[in-house]
Design a protein around this nucleic acid. Structure first.
Length: 478
RNA sequence: CCGGGUGUAGCGCAGUUUUGGUAGCGUGCUUGAAUGGGGUUCAAGAGGCCGCGAGUUCGAGUCUCGCCACUCGGACCA
């Protein structure tokens, strides 16, 4: 029943997935294009989703002892250049401020593409003793990267994110933090966004500029492409050495602290859209949806209908369910389509017929199922239905991931899978960069990660045939 | 950065060649009426520096030259 496309204005996702995505983000009122390429306006509905993401993650961070701070938006060139790998990684895509008013600056300033260098510079000032550690910082901000090609949510030149930065006394502690925060992201993606993840470590080729190790949660989108939804980096003491951050340890010797950073951006909203959305528009998991229930009165000119609808709204709100009502004069059909476009998880219809029977009609956004619900105990029924939608979305996404992840033992096999089916490919890999490059060249995939959940598919590398003990997941990435 | 495409009403587009000559369509918007359980119907109305700048011409949305912006694919990235 939900198969038929009820909204004509959006492109069919099976015809042109990219266009479908663009149609949805615009028509659901999430973003508008600004006058500058790659800069997007987050409209109230899009921003509300981000606010919910922020609220949940912020709580999680703070529960683990992190504190929020705010760093400058500009970085002096000399600072950016202190860590060699880092600057090489980011230099091609930074924007520079060269003038203040009409005066040319003595040193140009880059608009932050990420803030490691700023945190390091700060810590160099304030960290002196083992008693000053750990530093567990986070900031919510936007960063700038001058991307060549841009898309709403998925790749903007400016994007909103959070970047956590921590500094620790020992390597072990920093490594544990890196893992812990990756697990926070995985937990958040799976339990709040209903997006199952593949957790793992990035190959050296794919790791963050300046990091010793990068960990990632990778999600599969509806078109079977991969989206990196959160990353966590372990830096060792590389930055500390470059920025000369030292502390006196308990044994009265001078040491370099160990560092991490981790980030999750508005790209995740793109992930939500591409994971759960359908041909009628957006589909939001109830736990993150700004509005969980939309109440629509039917034949609202009939006596008592509006009043009953308002009564239902009040009941739901009192039960802590984020609900709205639409008493506007558009036709019911128009409203159905509108709120489906916006991905509201549950719709409650209430009309004269329902009132006579002491019931209302609930319609699930995820599968279109229509359920008659008694007005008595409505709050409990609705809460249960919202849970069902949340779980249904996760199960569906998990099925998509599992059914489209294939083992491969030869390049030909891998190529065939990518060309005919798409999805993720898991193979053994020897660890050589050359083989990784060849996979890109010949199969068209990049390594997504070396999953923590390893399977022994064989003992030779898919590419060179030499001994291999690592299983890698490959895919076409956003 | 390379290659293609597009700029005309809020949005989506036709009109541009073969013929330079009153600015069009759909949708949306406003108002009114009837409707109302899947984008309801009818009526009336408002809305344009035809991307920008030069040029040709009696006359340019249309022809010439230049510029700009956006967009889609490719190479690079959250």
């Amino acid at each position: 029943m939900a198969k038929e496309k009820k909204v004509q204005q959006i492109t069919d996702m099976d015809v042109d997935f990219a266009q479908w995505f663009t149609d949805v983000v615009v028509k659901a009122g999430l973003v508008d294009y600004s006058g500058i390429k790659g800069f997007y306006i987050l409209r109230p509905y899009g921003y509300a989703i981000w606010e919910n993401i922020q609220a949940v993650l912020d709580r999680m961070f703070k529960d683990l002892g992190h504190e929020n701070v705010s760093m400058p938006v500009l970085i002096p060139e000399s600072l950016l250049q202190k860590e060699k790998d880092h600057v090489e990684g980011f230099a091609p895509e930074v924007a520079w401020v060269t003038h203040g008013g009409s005066e040319e600056l003595q040193e140009r300033l880059c608009v932050r593409p990420t803030s490691e260098t700023l945190f390091c510079d700060h810590w160099q000032h304030v960290v002196h003793s083992w008693r000053d550690l750990p530093m567990l910082y986070n900031q919510w901000c936007s960063v700038l990267r001058w991307e060549k090609t841009t898309r709403p949510f998925l790749r903007g030149r400016e994007f909103l994110w959070q970047e956590g930065h921590t500094l620790h006394r020992t390597a072990e502690e920093a490594e544990a933090e890196t893992q812990q925060m990756l697990n926070v992201y995985a937990d958040f993606c799976e339990n709040w966004l209903a997006m199952p993840v593949v957790k793992g470590r990035k190959t050296d080729k794919e790791k963050f500029a300046g990091a010793e190790a990068t960990y990632t949660v990778e999600c599969m989108m509806h078109d079977k492409k991969a989206l990196q939804s959160g990353t966590s980096h372990y830096f060792g003491d590389g930055f500390a050495r470059a920025f000369e951050i030292t502390f006196t340890d308990k044994d009265n010797t001078l040491k370099y602290p160990h560092q991490t950073s981790w980030g999750l951006s508005t790209r995740t909203i793109g992930g939500l859209i591409m994971t759960h959305g359908d041909n009628n528009g957006l589909v939001l998991p109830p736990k993150i949806a700004p509005t969980q229930v939309i109440v629509i009165p039917i034949a609202s000119h009939k006596p008592g209908v509006i009043e009953k609808a308002e009564e239902i709204l009040a009941k739901l709100k009192a039960a802590g369910i984020r609900s709205k009502i639409d008493t506007g004069d558009q036709s019911p059909g128009w409203k159905f389509a509108e709120y489906e476009m916006k991905g509201i998880p549950l719709r409650i219809e209430i009309g004269p017929r329902d009132m006579e029977n002491g019931q209302c009609m609930a319609v699930r956004r995820d599968n279109g199922e229509k359920i008659i619900v008694a007005l008595d105990g409505l709050e409990e029924s609705v809460a249960k239905l919202l849970d069902d939608v949340q779980n249904g979305l996760y199960e569906k996404a998990l099925r998509n991931l599992n059914e489209n992840t294939f083992p491969a033992s030869t390049m030909e096999e891998a190529k065939d899978i990518i060309d005919t089916k798409g999805g993720f490919i898991k193979t053994m890999w020897c660890g050589d960069l050359d083989c990784e490059l060849e996979m890109k060249e010949k199969v068209g995939v990049s390594s997504r990660c070396i999953p923590f959940n390893q399977e022994k598919l064989g003992d030779t590398c898919i590419c060179c045939g030499k001994p291999a003990d690592k299983m890698v997941v490959w895919g076409v990435a956003y």
